[in-house]
């Protein structure tokens, strides 16, 4: 929150003359209020659930913040006709893109299926109409050809991307014996190291914190991520298992996602697939998980 805006004019200064101390007191009183955009989103129940609780509680307590957002609800921002047309063209373009992609999928399916059918027909023809079938010596069943990749074939691994640091509302509102948020203070060195890609330090600091804050999802989650980057998927699974027990709405999707990666990197494709299926069919943003599931199924179809 800044103090006076730069473009304040003489008329405003005159009108406010003598009230500077009161204005400053108001600024001080509301310095820690949630930002306007958060207040408005909370008013419309459009925040992730835990954050919604925190900001919603503030709104219900604060006459000031309520008056601020209520005043803006009476205004009617509009899209002018040009903006409406532009937006429609954009939506129309996306629809066309989806249609094309759908068409491509069907065409691609045909491309895959047609040769398979041809091979199948040929095989049947060969079995049924093979010449001199009866007089030939019995043919030993050919040994099944195992689809073993060559030794130097790259092993498929789900891609690991680094998630940004964020905190659960439980951590944000954490209160210990004192009124200060000691959890955030203790997490800071670990999260600073994490931001600098120093995963050894992240892991070390979080290991120390895990016993002190067993119910802080951040401790287990970021330790799991650090261990993944340290190529320790089995240890990462332990961390994510602890995080899974206590994760709230803010974290649960990410915990499942990174545990799936850890399981897959550890060779447990079935466990990875189970979590990806949960995310693909049950989360609000399933695209990433569905794509990964497809990749995983393609890479190890026999275990589906």
């Amino acid at each position: 929150m800044s103090t006076d805006p730069d473009d304040i004019d003489r008329e405003e200064r005159d009108a406010l003359a003598g009230l500077e101390d009161q204005l400053e007191a108001m600024r001080e009183r509301h310095r820690g209020d949630p930002p306007l955009d958060l207040l408005r989103a909370a008013r419309a129940d459009a925040l992730p659930s835990e954050l919604q609780d925190v900001v919603g509680q503030h709104l219900s307590r604060s006459d000031w913040s309520r008056a601020l957002v209520e005043g803006l609800e009476h205004e009617e921002p509009v899209l002018d006709s040009q903006a409406q047309r532009r937006l429609y063209a954009r939506i129309d373009g996306r629809i066309a893109q989806e249609r094309d992609s759908q068409g491509f999928k069907i065409w691609f399916r045909y491309l895959l299926v047609t040769p398979a059918i041809a091979v199948g027909v040929l095989a049947i023809w060969f079995v049924v109409y093979r010449p001199d079938q009866s007089v030939l010596q019995p043919i030993a069943t050919p040994p099944p050809v195992a689809a073993i990749p060559p030794a130097d074939a790259p092993v498929f691994q789900l891609a690991l991307d680094k998630p940004d640091v964020r905190l659960s509302p439980a951590a944000l509102t954490w209160r210990g014996a004192t009124s200060d948020n000691q959890l955030l203070a203790d997490l800071k060195p670990a999260l600073d190291a994490y931001r600098q890609n120093d995963y050894e330090s992240t892991n070390r600091v979080l290991t120390a914190l895990a016993t002190r804050y067993p119910n802080a999802v951040e401790v287990h989650f970021y330790q799991g991520i650090a261990r993944l980057f340290l190529a320790e998927p089995a240890l990462a699974i332990n961390s994510f298992a602890a995080a899974e027990e206590i994760a709230d709405d803010t974290f649960i999707a990410d915990v499942l996602w990174y545990r799936a990666i850890a399981e897959q990197h550890a060779g447990n494709d079935t466990d990875a697939r189970a979590r990806l299926e949960t995310l693909c069919h049950g989360s609000r943003s399933p695209e990433r998980a569905c794509t990964a599931l497809e990749q995983l199924n393609r890479s190890s179809p026999s275990r589906q």
Partner: peptide, 13 residues
């Protein structure tokens, strides 16, 4: 990741 930025403000008394 608004929680992260909001954290700084919540921490203020």
């Amino acid at each position: 990741a608004v929680e992260q930025r909001y954290a700084d403000r919540v921490g203020e008394r």
